[in-house]
Design a binder for these strands. Structure first.
Length: 102
DNA sequence: AGGGTGACGATCA
DNA sequence: ATGATCGCCACCC
């Protein structure tokens, strides 16, 4: 499970972002947002700064939150108040299931 | 084996 | 909008 979550996180391209819940769904575990958090903690080398809370909100506190914002802005991600402009930067994972015709 | 814990999310006051 | 609560669930004592 952690592997699948990690794999999903790795797919988020530079300049794009996603959310804990969306990553969980993309990995095939809807509702496992907390496990996404665990993966981010226990796995290194991930683009951790590209994972946000629902609505594009940074869920970290203190300095970490500041650093995350800086990293994102450095990749060209724009903010609207405290949130990321999701309409513009949210990464859409390829359909696990599919609108793939048959 | 059992209880506490979260970089969450949805809902309600 | 902010804060509390509840549901969730693998992980860590």
């Amino acid at each position: 499970m952690r592997e699948r979550i990690v794999a999903a996180i790795r797919k988020i391209p530079r300049g794009k972002v996603s959310t804990y819940g969306a990553v969980a769904r993309a990995a095939g575990y809807p509702g496992a947002a907390r496990q996404v958090v665990r993966a981010l903690h226990t796995s290194m080398g991930l683009p951790w700064h590209r994972v946000l809370g629902v609505g594009g909100e940074i869920k970290l506190r203190g300095d970490s939150a500041f650093e995350q914002r800086l990293r994102l802005e450095a990749e060209g991600v724009t903010f609207r108040g405290r949130r990321v402009n999701m309409s513009q930067h949210e990464f859409k994972f390829p359909r696990p299931k599919a609108t793939r015709k048959r």
